[in-house]
């Protein structure tokens, strides 16, 4: 997908957050990445390492927590979690009427700063 865009965006947000709280260096950034977000963790790590050079996050590690795709079937009422990157139908009954509950996250959750 757009790992460069995502990495740059998460760096900008983290650096602002760090400086606005009076800190000068970022040690780690923890993010939650949904499996259906279109972002490939390996590619995000690679671009993050490239883009962080020369910033206050130069020494920072990026910790990625992947979030599975989950949903609720409106037909059979099942709550389900799938391994795929998309839900195409309810794995229990095969119906197409479902609500997606998780899997598209692209969130920063925690920064370790000094």
């Amino acid at each position: 997908m757009h790992e460069v865009f995502v990495a740059q965006s998460l760096l900008n947000i983290s650096i602002n957050e760090c400086q606005n709280n009076g800190f000068h260096r970022i040690e780690s950034i923890k993010v939650r990445i949904g499996r259906a977000s279109g972002v490939i963790p390996e590619a995000l790590l690679f671009t993050f390492d490239t883009l962080k050079a020369g910033t206050i996050a130069e020494g920072a590690s990026l910790v990625i927590e992947e979030v599975s795709v989950s949903g609720h079937c409106n037909m059979c009422n099942a709550d389900f979690i799938v391994d795929e990157r998309f839900i195409l139908c309810c794995p229990q009954c095969g119906d197409n009427s479902f609500t997606v509950n998780s899997g598209r996250e692209l969130d920063i959750v925690e920064l370790e700063v000094f």
């Binding site: 995502v6 947000i13 957050e17 000094f114």
Partner: peptide, 14 residues
């Protein structure tokens, strides 16, 4: 020091 942040990475676009 740990800072709890809840920020959507694509917020800038949104």
């Amino acid at each position: 020091m740990k800072l709890k942040v809840v920020s959507k990475i694509l917020d800038a676009n949104e």
